[in-house]
């Protein structure tokens, strides 16, 4: 991952800090850095969100298009992830420099969203076998301060929560073709059901311990990191009281980055640590999104964007 160069003694300092469960910025091994989240920041997109996790800055825009479903899955829509590492983050990303990192993140996201228990593609179907929605989830990395995967997955879930699909008013059958008439009223739209959408949690092995939310400097000290994708809990994303029976979180993807290796015992405990962290994050994200939704609809909150 891109990041700053640090010296040997700084590395030792960070590793010793982690051993004593007191990291260089005062956190313990299970603490996240402060986050800022805002939805609906890009008006050209159907849904958008900006997330700032300490120094990491992510902007996600969701665009929708009508497409033909794949012949083998006629009842399902499509979702595609595209990551762009902006050169604003670091000069290394200039030209095609960020492509490798971008591909790693987008394929991890694609895998995490692949399972129907993570994201139900049936809700994107318009006419079985004929037409469906295709969601383009475009992720823009504006600043790298470590822990990109977690930040990206949080921002994507927030942007999908914010996405509105226009309702179909009428459809004209003309031979084999379907001509759709979409509602042009922006309020006549449906929201996506993203309760179970997965969140990624990166666990960074530094020395002998695993920590969550590594900063850029900590990522430099680690030999291996484990990314766990955990499905969400729909109860966190609805306000009314008709409680859906709690679905247990499931791992939808696990991947490892880095040159080192892990013992099976550490691996198992790291995965469990990841699931707990994902559950807490999901709860916090749900709260924040519902609060933001209320503010937008009742208080006519104006957007801050990057001006704050």
């Amino acid at each position: 991952m891109a990041g700053s160069l640090i010296s040997q003694s700084e590395q030792v300092f960070i590793v010793h800090g982690v051993e004593n469960d007191f990291r260089s910025d005062g956190r313990s091994s299970i603490d996240y850095r402060p986050m800022e989240l805002e939805t609906d920041v890009v008006s050209h997109a159907s849904g958008s969100a900006r997330l700032r996790l300490a120094n990491t800055d992510i902007l996600v825009g969701v665009k929708t298009e009508i497409d033909v479903p794949k012949p083998e899955t006629p009842g399902l829509g499509k979702i595609e992830f595209f990551v762009d590492c902006s050169a604003n983050a670091t000069p290394e990303f200039e030209g095609r420099g960020g492509e490798q990192l971008a591909n790693t993140i987008s394929s991890t996201m694609q895998r995490a969203y692949y399972s129907p228990q993570a994201f139900n593609l049936k809700q994107l179907c318009i006419f079985e076998g004929k037409q469906c929605w295709k969601l383009y989830v475009d992720i823009l990395i504006l600043e790298c301060g470590g822990n990109l995967c977690d930040a990206v997955s949080l921002a994507v879930k927030a942007a999908l929560f914010n996405t509105r699909l226009p309702c179909v008013k009428a459809a004209l059958m003309d031979g084999g073709n379907i001509d759709l008439q979409l509602s042009d009223d922006p309020y006549d739209s449906k929201q996506l059901d993203i309760g179970t959408a997965p969140l990624l949690v990166t666990l960074c092995k530094i020395g002998t311990k695993c920590v969550v939310d590594p900063s850029a400097e900590e990522e430099r000290c680690s030999v291996i990191s484990l990314v766990v994708g955990v499905t969400g809990n729909p109860n966190f994303y609805q306000t009314d009281d008709n409680v859906i029976p709690d679905i247990k979180c499931k791992c939808s993807t696990i991947s490892m980055n880095g040159p080192g290796s892990l013992s099976p015992k550490t691996l198992k405990s790291a995965i469990e640590q990841g699931i707990t962290a994902a559950n807490c994050l999901d709860n916090a994200l749900g709260d924040a999104l519902l609060r933001e939704k209320d503010e937008i609809s009742y208080l006519k909150k104006h957007s801050y964007g990057f001006l704050k």
Binding site: A45, L59, G61, K63, F82, D84, A87, D138
Partner: peptide, 15 residues
């Protein structure tokens, strides 16, 4: 002076 201009994929009406 080295400049790079890039547009986010969601910046325009059409993707």
């Amino acid at each position: 002076v080295n400049c790079q201009y890039s547009m986010a994929t969601f910046s325009t009406g059409e993707r």
